[in-house]
Design a protein around this nucleic acid. Structure first.
Length: 488
RNA sequence: GUCCCCAUCGUCUAGCGGCCUAGGACACCGCCCUUUCAAGGCGGUUGCGCCGGUUCGAAUCCGGUUGGGGAUGCCA
């Protein structure tokens, strides 16, 4: 499936600041596709330069969820690789010399302004509706001693880049062609805590790790001139850039965990989505189906036809309808045994513990549930009747109210018929009951079977009656039929 | 405020000057099938934001306008 394109090295670089974000998976998918298409490599790098937002558990969640999704990386913090370490916090010594060099070359300068001074500066610029905003370069060209005499001074400086007036603002984008970006501010490169900012770290690491294609969200377009400046100052070739459209909430804003539970990658795991369905869905966002006939396609098919220019520039709204349909379709396409296994596994890890007998019930229900599931989590509710002891079965009021005058007769006849059945398969049950109730008593199937459904499941709506009976077993079914009969 | 990006059914998309009285998918609505619910089959409603221009001809090119989004952080 590799093409004759030169092997590309791509990376995804999430920040461990909480639950993995769905955008990380989206970026990973497209990164990985191109890496595979060119026979190159896909790298996972952890961008943990923000100490304040760092969450220890986050990296594990990121790797687990991306693995769950089936998007494996060739190099990363957990698997190693020729450019280790792959955690930016472990690369602090790597960045320092480059920062020093930029300062020495006059491309960057120290800034001793306090965060308070900066905040005030920003506020006053906002108030005066100034057309030029950003740092006022108070520290530029001053020594520590000179600056110390002025207000808003702090002992530990940051390092800022000195953006020249003629900074190039136009660059080529694999998806958008020629793109113009805003003029950057004198961006901080090294923070007071000694950590580089994203802008410094990303350029150094991408270069050192041999990244050939930077694929990231559209929100980074405005930062690209800064990065290009850095590449130039450091004497490095810049990689190719592809700015992906931003996933959006239904209100069209950038997708966020606050407004959209689906912004959390873990949410899909918890809900019972199939990773292959989510992958297929993500692939369809801002990207045409691989095949005219169907929107269902494998990762390999996606890779085969992959082209940057096919990616749309419009940020797609993350709408669950199509994903739900895809998930149901993928569930239906699963071999029954595998669905059974996934169901048992899902219920156990995300819903409730299962005894051995209960696991067998869930596993055995796979075939009858298959066309009825949108999510794996849907199974449990539909199987309530089968996981409830006969004596504890509750007959819902709206179910009981469906019972007609024919119910007692139906229940009696059903008990007699089922008792006499040599084998308790759904085919045998079907045939037996149809013979006695429909042909024998002359009842409409609808009427006859409704009463039995109520007795066996306690509900108005349930999985197919005969399969449900077979799943439950003869003894249990008879007990339930007698129980409802007795209550009439 | 300033700068940048973007604009086809409700949603995801096809379209890259004539094949478009705009195609597909999801959702929605009917009908069929049917023991309930699904699944499946068949059919249907819905869209090129607006105004100019270029052209024999515009969803497709250009300008403007409106609308949406993003950036403007010692967050990424």
């Amino acid at each position: 499936m590799t093409s004759d394109l030169p092997p590309a090295r791509l990376r995804v670089a999430p920040s461990p600041t909480g639950d993995p974000h769905v955008g990380t998976a989206y970026m990973s998918l497209f990164n990985l596709a191109y890496a595979r298409k060119t026979g190159g490599a896909f790298v996972l790098r952890i961008e943990d330069t923000d100490r304040a937002r760092y969450q220890a558990d986050s990296e594990r969640q990121i790797t687990e969820t991306l693995r769950w999704l089936g998007l494996p990386w060739d190099e990363g913090p957990d698997v190693g690789g020729p450019y280790a370490p792959y955690r930016q916090s472990e690369r602090l010594d790597t960045y320092r010399p480059y920062v020093d060099r930029l300062v020495a070359d006059g491309h960057a300068y120290y800034c001793w302004c306090t965060p308070e001074r900066l905040a005030e500066l920003r506020k006053s610029q906002e108030r005066s509706k100034a057309s030029v905003t950003g740092y006022d370069r108070l520290c530029l060209g001053k020594t520590r001693e000179e600056r110390a005499l002025l207000p808003g001074f702090q002992e530990t400086p940051v390092v800022r880049m000195l953006v020249p007036d003629d900074v190039p603002l136009v660059f080529d984008d694999l998806i958008r062609g020629s793109v113009a970006a805003p003029r950057p501010d004198d961006q901080v490169l090294l923070k007071t805590d000694g950590f580089p900012t994203y802008h410094m770290a990303v350029v150094v690491d991408d270069h050192l790790m041999g990244i050939t294609h930077v694929v990231r969200g559209e929100e980074w377009i405005s930062s690209t001139p800064k990065h290009l400046l850095l590449y130039g100052w450091l004497g490095w070739d810049a990689p190719a850039f592809a700015h992906m459209p931003l996933l959006r909430n239904t209100d069209r804003s950038k997708i966020s965990k606050r407004k959209n539970p689906a912004a959390r990658l873990l949410w899909f795991v918890e809900q019972g989505y199939l990773p292959e369905a989510l992958r297929n869905f993500l692939q369809l966002l801002a990207y045409p189906p691989a095949d005219d006939e169907s929107e269902i396609s494998t990762f390999d098919e996606f890779v085969e036809g992959f082209e940057w220019t096919k990616i749309n520039t419009v940020g797609p709204i993350f709408d669950l309808d199509k994903l739900n349909w895809l998930n149901g379709t993928y569930i239906r396409n699963l071999p029954v045994a595998e669905l059974g296994e996934r169901l048992v596994d899902f219920v156990r890890t995300h819903q409730r513990p299962l005894t051995v007998a209960e696991s067998a019930v869930v596993y055995g229900a796979a075939a009858m549930l298959q066309p009825r599931l949108v999510l794996l989590s849907d199974a449990l509710d539909q199987l309530t009747f089968a996981l409830t002891p006969d004596a504890d079965l509750v007959i819902d009021e709206d179910a009981r109210s469906q019972l007609t005058d024919a119910a007692p007769g139906v229940l009696d006849a059903a008990v007699a018929t089922l008792e006499a059945l040599p084998e308790f398969t759904h085919e045998a049950i079907d045939e037996g009951l149809r013979t006695t109730l429909v042909e024998g008593l002359g009842l409409k199937p609808r009427v006859a079977f409704a009463a039995l459904r109520v007795a066996v499941t306690g509900r108005k709506v349930s999985p197919p009656l005969f399969e449900s009976m077979a799943l439950l077993g003869k003894e249990s079914v008879l007990a339930r039929l007698r129980s409802l009969r007795a209550s009439l």
